[in-house]
Simulated scan of single mutants.
Amino acid sequence: MDSVNGLISKSLCQQPLFSFGVIADVQYADIPDGHSFLGVPRYYRHSILVLQRAIKKWNTCSNLQFSINFGDIVDGFCPKDDSLTAVRKVLEEFATFNGPVYHMIGNHCLYNLARCELTSLFKIPSIDGSAHYDFSPTPGYRIVVLDAYDISALGWPHDHPKTLAAKLILDEKNPNTDKNSPEGMMGLDQRFLMFNGAVGEKQLKWLDDILKESTEKEQKVIVCCHIPLNPDVTPLAALLWNYDEVMEVIYRYKCVKACLAGHAHEGGHSIDSHGIHHRVLEAALECPPGFDAFGHIDVYDDRIHLIGSNRLANTEMVFTS
Rank of each mutant, 00 (worst) to 15 (best):
A24D: 06
H103P: 01
H226I: 03
N107Q: 03
P182K: 04
E286C: 10
H158L: 14
F97K: 01
I307R: 11
E183S: 14
G187V: 06
K257C: 11
A166N: 03
V256H: 04
Y243Q: 06
D159I: 08
A24G: 08
Q14L: 13
M1S: 15
S83D: 12
Y253P: 00
N176T: 04
V246G: 05
E245L: 10
G275D: 07
R303P: 01
G197R: 00
G267V: 04
D208K: 09
S152N: 03
A313K: 13
F37N: 15
I276N: 06
E286Y: 06
K89R: 12
R115D: 05
I143E: 05
S181Y: 04
G71I: 02
M1Q: 12
V221T: 07
H296V: 01
E183G: 11
I105V: 12
D2W: 13
A29C: 08
G129Q: 07
D208T: 05
I222Q: 02
R45F: 03
W241R: 01
F122S: 02
G71M: 03
K202A: 11
F20K: 01
S309L: 09
V145W: 00
V280C: 12
K212I: 06
L154R: 02
R252E: 12
H160A: 07
L281W: 09
D72Q: 04
C61Q: 15
Q65M: 13
E183F: 12
Y44C: 04
L164A: 07
R279P: 01
E93Y: 09
W241Y: 11
V74I: 12
L17P: 00
S120T: 14
Y141V: 07
I210Y: 06
K179R: 12
E266D: 14
K10L: 11
D150F: 06
C225M: 07
S120V: 14
L207M: 06
A237T: 13
D178H: 08
Y251D: 09
M194Q: 13
K220F: 09
K80F: 14
P100D: 10
C225G: 03
G106K: 01
I297L: 10
L170S: 10
E286F: 07
D25Q: 02
L229G: 02
L236V: 07
S273P: 03
E245H: 11
K205Q: 13
G99H: 09
P16D: 09
Y300F: 15
L113S: 05
G275C: 08
M104A: 10
Y243F: 14
P100K: 06
